[in-house]
């Protein structure tokens, strides 16, 4: 997993990073935050266990909390952008209080609002999300900058010893769009069926 290529900035390329995190994913459920992270999890495989978001900016982490509490035996990874996380930053406190063991929040920090034209986010100016997460009571908080650290992060997502928060510094170059279905009722129904079986549709 140390073969994650670096971009011009010397930081990891997002697509390869997300592919590595979702490799051999087992029972892992993944929520992809609005913007490029939704396309990243889709590029890794457009599977029912993925919930790529077309909206609800600021809500990804809390969706992860609701899902993690409902499915305590499955690992849940929220993979989202620094802009999306900043909009819902208070949810770190909510999650810190609930301490869901099976929830991991992975912020792909390109220090920009990529989807809207690469405007700078607060992390560009030194705002430290990992420290904010630590302050919210999330004990396993990591700042990840090197490909060598990714295998351990992937293992921790599956370990169920969370909650876990990782701020991963990534290269700011954007990647080609890989779009999931846009009809969101399909996205929820396919994920619910993957988790709950056909009974999901009769709940």
């Amino acid at each position: 997993m140390t073969d994650i290529p670096l971009g011009a900035s010397g930081r990891m390329k997002r697509r390869d990073l997300v592919k590595a995190l979702l490799a051999d994913r087992g029972k892992l459920l993944a929520i992809g935050g609005l913007g490029a992270p939704a396309w990243d999890i889709t590029a890794a495989g457009d599977v029912p266990e993925n919930m790529p978001l077309w909206g609800g900016m600021g809500g990804a982490a809390m969706m992860g909390l609701g899902l993690a509490l409902a499915q305590p035996d499955r690992p849940v990874a929220v993979i989202t952008g620094d802009g999306e996380m900043l909009m819902g930053i208070g949810s770190l406190a909510t999650i810190g209080v609930k301490q869901p063991r099976n929830l991991a929040i992975i912020v792909l920090d390109n220090e920009h609002y990529g989807e809207t034209g690469m405007q700078e986010t607060a992390t560009r100016h030194g705002v430290d999300l990992a420290t904010m997460a630590k302050g919210a009571g999330i004990a396993d908080t990591r700042l990840v900058t090197q490909p060598e650290e990714v295998a351990a992060l992937r293992a921790a997502i599956h370990a169920g010893a969370g909650p876990l928060f990782a701020q991963v510094k990534i290269d700011e170059s954007s990647e080609p769009l890989v779009l999931p279905p846009r009809e969101a009722s399909i996205l929820q129904a396919r994920m619910r069926e993957a988790i709950l079986g056909k009974a999901a549709h009769l709940q």
Binding site: I31, G58, M62, G66, L67
Partner: peptide, 20 residues
């Protein structure tokens, strides 16, 4: 869950429903 802002609850209920 005591939220920091109400919109968190809309998102949380969505996640809950995904998980049944």
């Amino acid at each position: 869950a005591t939220l920091t802002t109400e919109e968190e609850g809309i998102a949380m209920l969505f996640g809950a429903w995904l998980g049944g």
